[in-house]
Every structure is written in C-alpha cells, then in structure tokens.
C-alpha cells in the first residue's frame, strides 16, 4: 500500500529553487531515512508532505489523497526537531503533554507503556533528559495509532545512550507495530545502520534505495562534498 506518493514536485522560495522534480513513493512498513546536507531541501520537503507549504508544481498524495484535501491527520504522527516548549520552563508533566490532545486515559497508558515511560508520567517534562523528552513526543505522536510516523532530526542534542534507546524504540515500532517511519537526519552513518530505505536529497533526489548501496557508491561525496567520509559510531 502506498502511504506517500510524491510526483514531480518542484518548490522555490521566490526565484530560488529549493526542490526540483522530486518523485518518491513510501510504502506501508517502510523505514525511510531522508538525508541531505544543510540547505538541501529536507525540511522543505517535510513541510510540503505535511501540507504546510504549497508546491510550485507537482503533487503529494497522502494515503491516496491530495495533501491539500487530506483531512485525517490522526493517521500521521509528527515529531519536530525541537519542541517549541523546550526552553519555556512551564511546569507540565509527561501525562499532561499527552492528555492535552484530548484522548482517553487508556490510550495514554498504551503509548506510555510502548515508549517505556510509565514510571515518568508524573515527572515534569523539564526534568527529563533530551532523549527522554523526545520519547515523550514520540509517545504523543503515537496516540490514536497513526499509520505513519515522521521524525525531523530527532536526536539533535541527545546523548549517545539515549540515542541507542531511541533507535531501539523506532525499530520496535517499525518491526512489531508495522509502523511506517520517515526519519530525517544528517547523521548518515546512523541512517545507514537503522533504516530499510534511504532517500538522499540535494535539491533533487540523488539516491533512493537500500542503504548498503549508498555506502558503496560515491554518493556521500555528491551529497556532502569531497572531504566527507563515513565513520562508524561505536555505540
């Protein structure tokens, strides 16, 4: 089943071209890594996927419907790079973050268990580590059982140990819950290890396929320039 279908998508800010002729399909159960250097158009593509920007030409279909007329946003869970709350300091508990979406208590308990956050539900969000905070926002995105989870650079500023737990959770969601995931990241080595498919963006779609082949070709150079090479993380 096609979850997302992008057809010949073009986008420009005034005269500055940002995305050129992007065509891409995401199928049910995919774990897609969307990579590219800063300014490559990753975030713009996400905004187009979520209907927050209008394309210059081309179209985006979500669950077979044009994004402009798509209404069932409960099918999609979204975790932003950095919650706008993070520096505010308002006392809000993990439970309250989930409750404000208006869902029933049983559903909140389900996602808390899924994200291993039961013991943290009465803690203040500001008392949690960066990794734990991101797990809270994943838990929120999982309310009402969405079919697609989109994460925008979710591990920026998150320590190594928390990152391990974070990717364990994503694997579990993808493999056990059959959740389709799109993970936007510039950490190419992690993407190559974790995901089942990779899409490399550099204004246009440079590569779309298995992460293994990405490492064999000279695509890293195409994306990041000649001075970049892959270094494996040890954790």
């Amino acid at each position: 089943m096609k979850i997302i279908e992008i057809k010949h998508l073009n986008f420009a800010y005034q005269r500055e071209k940002v995305l050129t002729d992007i065509s891409l399909t995401v199928r049910s159960g995919d774990f897609l890594g969307l990579i590219g250097q800063n300014g490559s158009g990753k975030s713009t593509l996400l905004k187009l996927l979520l209907g927050l920007l209008k394309p210059k030409s081309g179209e985006v279909l979500l669950f077979g419907q044009r994004v402009e007329s798509f209404k069932d946003w409960s099918q999609i869970g979204y975790v932003a790079q950095k919650s706008n709350f993070s520096s505010n300091g308002f006392p809000v508990t993990v439970y309250e973050v989930l409750r404000m979406t208006g869902v029933a208590t049983e559903e909140i308990e389900r996602v808390l268990a899924l994200s291993s956050l039961q013991s943290k539900k009465d803690r203040l969000l500001t008392e949690l580590s960066g990794g734990q905070q991101q797990r809270v926002f994943i838990a929120r995105a999982l309310l009402n059982r969405p079919k697609l989870l989109i994460l925008d650079e979710p591990t920026v500023g998150v320590d190594g140990n928390s990152q391990i737990k974070f990717y364990e959770l994503l694997r579990k969601l993808n493999q056990e819950e059959q959740l389709t995931i799109i993970l936007v990241s510039h950490e190419i080595d992690i993407i190559a290890r974790e995901v089942s498919k990779v899409a490399c963006i550099n204004q246009s779609l440079v590569y779309h396929g298995h992460p293994k082949e990405l490492l064999e070709d000279n695509l890293i150079e195409k994306l990041y320039g000649q001075h970049h090479r892959l270094i494996a993380h040890t954790h």
Partner: peptide
Amino acid sequence: CFDEEGARLKG
C-alpha cells in the same frame, strides 16, 4: 499554546 505546529497536525 504549548505546541502550535503539533496541535495543527493533530487536526
């Protein structure tokens, strides 16, 4: 007020 973008994407 807590997260406008998140709220919009939840409908």
